[in-house]
């Protein structure tokens, strides 16, 4: 999927630019580490990956597949 790769490259470029910009601003960290330039980028990547992993894992355990008709019929 070249489009997906293109979007990914664009986002990565944007993130890199943001990190670079982050090196030139004055930080007001509350816990020290959150003032490191680029911290938010890494934290965002890791946290999102963790969220997806958590949701996917829980989905494997607790989500029951249904047909579309079953899903509609469940209401009431």
């Amino acid at each position: 999927m070249p489009i997906a790769r293109l979007v990914l490259a664009g986002l990565a470029g944007l993130l890199a630019a943001l990190i670079v910009a982050d090196m030139f601003v004055m930080h007001h960290p509350a816990f020290g580490i959150d003032g490191t330039p680029g911290f938010a980028a890494i934290f965002g990547l890791v946290a999102s990956a963790a969220a997806i992993a958590l949701a996917f894992g829980w989905g494997q355990i607790a989500r029951r597949r249904e047909t579309a008709a079953e899903e509609e019929g469940r209401d009431g």
Binding site: A4, V7, L8, L11, A12, L14, L15, L18, I19, D22, G38, A40, A41, I42, F43, G44, L45, A47, S48, A49, I52, F56, W58, G59, A62, R63, R64, R65, E66, T67, A68, E70, E71, R74
Partner: peptide
Amino acid sequence: LQLLVGASICFVLFLRLLVPHAGTTV
């Protein structure tokens, strides 16, 4: 912005895991 762009990258990377399916979650 870094946080949100980071999340977006993950979204594109793991799009297949996030595809919706009909069903119920306990």
